[in-house]
Design a protein around this nucleic acid. Structure first.
Length: 596
RNA sequence: GGUCUGGUAGCUCAGCUGGAUAGAGCAACAGCCUUCUAAGCUGUCGGUCGAGCGUUCGAAUCGCUCCCAGAUCACCA
């Protein structure tokens, strides 16, 4: 039982004893006392005034007296206005620390056979261009979310739906056939996804030129778009693809293969992975059955022209198209089909889609439709919606080449980390391999932390030159603290000092108590983050912990402390802070270095 | 126009299940390396929490109205 719970219960008992009124202990939430005041935990007594029929001070005093007399954990109390500040018996804190120290998987719930299965969809790239900054945010959020859900005792299936078909990939294929001269990633010395992206841009360049010359010949923009031979060729290619034309399919498979090899490299470097990958080329026809089923169930209807719709006006939305008059699927139909396949593959209890906020409406509709079609998780599906990443110059436009490429960005981060480390002399005495690994961990840590620490809903501006820092509330700051703790522990190991803490009846000081309290909060932070699906909560918690530890660290010499009990206590505290940092960073997908 | 989401220090952001004098970092300025890693620590400066009204003992937090910004409302994906 945590200290918070003990106090809640004690206050509930006190209210009953003093005023003969039953109060649910769960509704009494002690808060940590502000630094300016004496005490560890604070009870706000205003809610009890109606029960006590006394003024705030008198009520607080009565409760405080009762607690001091009847609760072992309470050492003393003071009252300021309606706030009852409680000081916990210092020896209790040592007990809390050893409890944390002795709890395996501290803060994480175990996954059992009865655990619910949650499927998390993220990444979902198109195969016509490499991953960019927006995908980076998506991938990091998706991966971190998965880790957080696992820590909360869910079975997690990470999934990726690859948009591998459609007009966009045909454009790249066409450009490659026309101007590629048989080039391959090997010949070009380039990652496959980048090579395909180049051809996509090339198509657009030629297409624009064609439009321009048509318009120069007196055509309107609309006419030019219709008459463009390039676009016509691309459409023909798409039709051939859909008809299963062997040659087109062959090129398609080859080029997509290049792209996947490139993606795999990027994913690996980013540290994200998937349990199951779906391809739209396999799923895009799947939704039709479900829609036809929907007509039978009466939740969808067919118009005279043959198109199929769902009437969502009862839910405050519009009518939504599901099958075109020519019988082909739209985006929504595909997502229904994908849902069907997924449910065949896994007994899904809960579904989370990590997709940008421009699709909020889409998922609102999808949720309603899946629910009507009888998917038990449809109604409660979570669209984990995140804001756009913009550049100082504005939005990224892939066709105009104003995107921040994921691979380039990682390179840049790692280079910056290497340079900064070298400047600070941190890499002295490291082998080349070690130095490279440390630079990688720090560079990626900075990037990941930067992306994850902000509220996902917010749009963020990414300034490549200024945005990522290594000081303050950053990944490297946290990693640095971890590395320093490891350094202390290495020294301990060398000197064979005792690390035992159990028998120590040491009374911690204010800073140490604050740290223990913070550590004790970790499980509830993980739980809350799971409810809100927010890595940002984990990030900011860790920052607070680290900030607090650094202040402690600076004030006390751990290794040179002469009192062996105090030294052992501080070593134990440090080790547990390190442990929590590493677990919290693990939830964010950020590695922590042994030294830096 | 309808719906959704944001608006907190010069900048980037915490805090939002209502609690004490609204917190960090960056930037600026002033200190701290013979002591376990100075990517650190300490201090100064910096705020009508978009505006107003309401609920409450108490509102950045809850409700309503308005302002600003973004997203979305296709037989595109």
């Amino acid at each position: 039982m945590s200290i918070d719970n003990i106090i809640s219960q004690a206050v509930a008992d006190a209210v009953k004893a003093l005023y003969s009124v039953e109060v649910d202990a769960a509704t009494i939430v002690p808060q940590t006392t502000k630094k300016e005041f004496e005490g560890n935990l604070t009870i706000v007594v205003f809610p009890f005034l109606k029960i006590s029929r006394k003024n705030p001070e008198a009520t607080a005093k009565e409760l405080g007296e009762y607690l001091q007399a009847n609760c072992e954990a309470v050492k003393c109390y003071n009252v300021i206005k309606g706030f009852l500040n409680i000081t916990i018996e210092p020896s209790f804190w040592a007990g809390v620390l050893s409890h944390i120290n002795d709890t395996p998987n501290y803060g994480f719930k175990p996954v059992t056979a009865e655990s619910e299965l949650v499927m998390i969809e993220y990444s979902s790239p198109n195969t016509n261009k490499p991953l960019h900054l927006g995908h980076v945010r998506n991938n990091l959020l998706g991966f971190s979310l998965s880790e957080i859900m696992k820590a909360n005792g869910y079975k997690v299936v990470k999934t990726n739906i690859v948009n591998d078909r459609g007009i966009h990939i045909c454009k790249s294929m066409l450009a490659w056939e026309k101007w590629g001269d048989g080039i391959t990633p090997e010949k070009a010395g380039k990652k496959g996804d980048h090579l395909i992206g180049d051809f996509y841009v090339l198509f657009d360049k030629h297409y624009k030129a064609e439009l321009k010359s048509l318009m120069a010949a007196g055509k309107s923009e609309e006419e030019a778009e219709k008459e463009s031979t390039l676009m016509q060729e691309a459409r023909e290619m798409l039709q051939k693809w859909e008809a299963g034309d062997a040659k087109v399919r062959g090129v398609w498979e080859m080029m997509n293969g290049w792209v996947y090899a490139g993606f795999d490299e990027t994913y690996k470097r980013l540290g994200v992975d998937f349990d199951k990958i779906y391809y739209e080329s396999n799923t895009y026809l799947e939704g039709k059955d479900k829609v036809l089923e929907g007509i039978e169930k009466g939740v969808m209807y067919r118009k005279e022209d043959g198109s199929v719709w769902a009437d969502l006006t009862n839910d405050g939305l519009d009518h939504k198209l599901l099958l075109r008059s020519d019988g082909t699927s739209v985006y929504m139909t595909q997502d229904i089909g994908t849902a069907k396949l997924r449910y065949q593959d896994y007994p899904i209890d809960k579904m989370i889609y990590v997709v940008g906020n421009e699709q909020n409406y889409h998922f609102q509709v999808l949720s309603l439709l899946l629910d009507r079609l009888g998917f038990k998780w449809g109604k409660d599906l979570v669209h984990f919606s995140y804001g756009m990443v913009e550049l100082p110059e504005g939005k990224m436009k892939s066709r105009e080449g104003t995107v921040v490429d994921a691979d380039d960005l990682m390179d840049e981060m790692i280079n910056t980390a290497r340079e900064t480390s070298a400047e600070l002399g941190k890499l002295d005495g490291c082998s080349g391999e070690e130095a490279e690994n440390i630079s990688r961990i720090i560079g990626l840590g900075a990037l990941k932390y930067f992306m994850l620490k902000v509220d996902p809903r917010k749009n963020m501006t990414f300034n490549p030159k200024e945005s990522i820092d290594f000081n303050g509330n950053t990944g490297p700051f946290i990693q640095y603290t971890y590395a320093r703790i490891q350094s202390v522990l290495r020294k301990v190991a060398e000197s064979a000092m005792s690390q035992a803490v159990d028998a120590v009846a040491f009374e911690p000081n204010e800073k140490e108590i604050a740290l223990i309290q913070r550590l004790a909060d970790f499980p509830s932070v993980v739980e809350e983050a799971g409810k809100a699906y927010s890595p940002a909560q984990i990030a900011n918690y860790t920052y607070d912990l680290v900030k607090e530890y650094n202040q402690f660290y600076h004030d006390y010499s751990i290794m040179k402390e002469e009192n062996a009990d105090i030294r052992a206590f501080r070593i134990c505290l440090s080790r547990n802070v390190g442990e929590v940092i590493s677990r919290a960073m693990g939830l964010l997908g950020i590695e922590v270095p042994e030294r830096m």
